Amino acid sequence: MSQKNHKIRVGISIGDFNGIGPEIIMKSLKDKTITDFFTPIIFGSGKIFTYQKNIFKLNLNFNYINEASQAQEGKLNMVNLVKENMNVELGTPTEESTKLAISSLEAATEALIKNEIDVLITAPINKDEMMKMGFQHAGHTGYFEEKFNKKGLMFLVTEDLKVAVSTHHIPVAHIAENISKEKIKKQISILNQTLIEDFCIQKPKIAVLGLNPHAGDGGVIGNEEIDIISPAIKELSDNDILAFGPFPADSFFQPHKYKNFDAILAMYHDQGLAPFKTIAYEEGVNYTAGLPFIRTSPDHGVAYDIAGKNMADEQSFTEAMFTAIKIFKNRTEYNELMSNRLQPRKIAIDNGIDEDLPEETES
């Protein structure tokens, strides 16, 4: 099957089923025509989804399979990881819901590695509960970095606003020691490349925020901008990457400022995500940039407080699905274009004759 006619296989991990994961997944897939656009493959439990679809009065039918390779186009496929009954306690994390969240993520990731799915959408997890059960990472990004043996970048995106963060889920007290010139250079390079490959921006302009208030105020409120961030930007600019800054974060997220750039690199989690989630409420998507595979998620958490109340808004999860599909198509097209580039002509250096030109004939 050619890539142009390929119906993209969208893998979905369910997160904590006592949160809003199953609800937003099913609401995003409730339209009967959704399978005309892609093939959904959920890694979960048929009994749990049947129980919850009845709560939310959703008319969905699942095609139960044992592995992702058995998925059928035109159907909502469910890799049935657990066939036994499980206790559902909506609003409260349990050992059962945490174990299935881990199993779902691991099974979906293996399917991605084995090319049984094309992209992966991850529903919200409870990081604390998963770590208690032996999960080694404080979030999805670190997990995927380990699985794919490559550094990723947490990248929150909408059509008009794209924000990456240099440090992820670490205490505020440790942020400064986790910032370095080489790390920032690498992250901006990843950001530049993903904007080109995955978002079709030919020459990206990237804004870099300062770490300290007022971007250090010339060294009065900290030296990280002078010693680390500015030198990183200068070296990248010398290598034809359009990076600018460091900008004071407190005034940057005004429309007439941030809209002048294709993406922003914030220095820490809340510096980037607080304004992003305010501006892009319910439509933002979390994308892990820089990895060989495509993974997105909604930009919110498990929301135990509204679990089971039919109040969860599926918009961010729906955006995550279609953003992953769009990125997959963009990256495929980019790779095809790059593989079909015209190769430079061979030159016979020893005699200076261009071998691709016809020889001159005597008159």
Rank of each mutant, 00 (worst) to 15 (best):
D250V: 02
D250K: 00
F252Q: 04
F253H: 08
Q254S: 08
Q254K: 10
Q254N: 10
P255N: 10
Y258E: 05
K259M: 09
K259P: 02
K259W: 04
N260D: 13
F261N: 01
F261C: 01
A263N: 12
A266I: 12
A266K: 10
Y268M: 06
H269I: 02
D270V: 01
D270L: 03
Q271K: 01
Q271N: 02
G272S: 04
A274P: 01
K277I: 02
T278C: 14
I279T: 08
A280L: 07
A280Y: 05
Y281K: 05
E282T: 08
E282P: 02
E282C: 03
E283D: 03
E283H: 08
G284A: 03
V285H: 03
N286I: 02
N286P: 02
N286E: 05
T288P: 03
A289E: 03
L291I: 04
P292Q: 04
F293Y: 15
R295W: 00
R295E: 00
T296Y: 02
S297D: 10
D299Y: 04
D299N: 07
G301V: 10
A303Y: 03
D305E: 06
I306G: 09
K309F: 06
K309P: 04
N310W: 07
M311S: 06
S316C: 04
S316G: 02
F317S: 12
T318S: 14
A320G: 13
F322E: 04
A324M: 09
A324V: 10
F328S: 05
K329I: 06
K329Y: 03
N330C: 05
R331H: 06
E333L: 14
E333N: 15
N335D: 13
E336R: 15
E336T: 13
L337F: 09
N340K: 11
R341P: 10
R341L: 15
R341K: 15
L342M: 15
Q343P: 06
R345I: 05
I347A: 07
A348K: 13
A348L: 14
D350G: 11
N351E: 08
G352C: 03
I353L: 13
D354V: 01
D354P: 01
L357H: 12
P358Y: 06
P358E: 05
E359C: 12
E359L: 13
